[in-house]
Nucleic acid binder design. Sequence first.
DNA 1: AACGTATCGATACGATCGTATGCCAACGTG
DNA 2: CACGTTGGCATACGATCGTATCGATACGTT
Lengths: 205, 205
Amino acid sequence: MPRPVDKDARRQDVAAALFRIAAREGLGAVSMRTVAAEAGFSLGAVQRYFRSKDEMLRFALDLAVSANRERLAGIAAGSGRPAFPEALRQALLTFLPTDAQRLAEARIWIAFFAEAAVRPDFAEVVGELDTEARTRLRRVLTAAAEAGEVDQDLDPDAVAELVLVLIDGLLSAAARHRPGASLDPQRAAIDAAVAALTRGPGREA
Amino acid sequence: MPRPVDKDARRQDVAAALFRIAAREGLGAVSMRTVAAEAGFSLGAVQRYFRSKDEMLRFALDLAVSANRERLAGIAAGSGRPAFPEALRQALLTFLPTDAQRLAEARIWIAFFAEAAVRPDFAEVVGELDTEARTRLRRVLTAAAEAGEVDQDLDPDAVAELVLVLIDGLLSAAARHRPGASLDPQRAAIDAAVAALTRGPGREA
DNA sequence: AACGTATCGATACGATCGTATGCCAACGTG
DNA sequence: CACGTTGGCATACGATCGTATCGATACGTT
C-alpha cells in the first residue's frame, strides 16, 4: 500500500465543503466541480472519494443526520437534570440561528428536507431520524408526565408529536432568518410553548 | 392586433405545470424544457410568456404566495364564528396532507422555502407573507385573549409566533409525508396544541 | 535501487441547461 | 384581397453538468 491517505477524513473534508456551499447557495449549487473547488481538491480527487454525486450526497446526508442524532441524544439525556420544562426550553433554543453555524445547519437541513420530500431514499434516512426522535421524546415526556411536569390533560404521545412539529417549524423559520432580524419573537414562542405544555408544579419559574 | 391570446391564462397554465413538476420531482427538476413539456407547450412558447427562467419562478412563487394568502385570510375571517379554539384547530388541520392536492402544496412550499433560505429575492416575498400572517394572527389572538379563549398567562403575540412556527412545522412534516402513513399523530399534536394554548371556557369540547 | 501500485490532475464525452435567433402560420386592418 | 404584425416552434450556441479515461507522480515493497 503506497502512500496511504485517510480516506474517511478526506470524505469528511469534501462533505464539509458541500455543507458550506449548500448553506450559502443551496443544494442546487452543489456539483462535483463546485464542491471540489470549495474543498481545494481537483475534480478527479473528489471522484475518487465518491464514485458518484449521489454517493457524495448520501454521505453528506448521513453525516448531517448523525450530527442531529447526537444533538437529539443530548436533549433526551439532559432531561431530568434540571426540571423538565427548563430542559425542553433549552433544547428548543438550540434550534434558533443564534450564530452563523446554527444558521448554516438550519439551511442545510431545510435543503435536505426539501430533497427528502421528493427522493424516497433521502426520505427514508430522514424518516429514521424522525422515528428515533419520536421514540426518545415519548420516553422523556412520559416520564415527565408521571413526575407531574406536563399538563395532565395532555396525552404525552401527542405532546411528543407536537414537539417534533415545533422543532421542524423552528428549523424552517431559522433557515429563512435574515441576519439583522431579532430572535426574541421566536424565543417568546418557545417560552409560550413550554409554558402551555407544562402544567406541573413550578410553571411560573 | 392579430390573434390575441390570453397571456395571463397561459402563464397560469405554465405555472401549474411547474407546480406539478416541483411537487413530483422537486425544484431541481424544473427547467424551461421540462415545464414546457409538462404543460404541453413548446420551449419557444414558454419563452414567450416568460422572458427568463427567473421570471417564471418568480411568477410561480407569487402565485403560491397568493394562494396561501387566501388560505390565511380564511383563517383570520373564520375566527369568532365558531369558538376560537375550534377555528384554530380547523385552520391547522388544513395544513395536513389529507389528499394529493394538499400534499403537493406542502411539497411546493417546502421547495420554495428552501430556495428562499438562499435567494434574497425569494426570501423577501416569503417574508412579506410571513409578516402579514403575523399581523393577522396577532389581531385574532388578541381578540380571542380578551374573550377569555386563550390561556391568560400567555402573551398573545408569543402565541401568534408559536402558531406560525407550528404551521411551518406542519408543512414541513406534511411535505415528507409517506402515502401510507397515518395522519392521526399529527392530528393529536394539533389537538394537544389547541388544548394547551386554549384555557378559556369549553376547552374540553 | 528498481519496480509496481495507489493517488491525483487533466482532459474528453454526451447530455442538458438557459438563452437567442430566425422562419412559418394565422389573423385584424388597409 | 393583400399586407403586416403577432403567436408559435424549431434550431443553434455556449456553458455546465455527471461521468469516464488516461498519463504523471510519489511512495512502500522486494
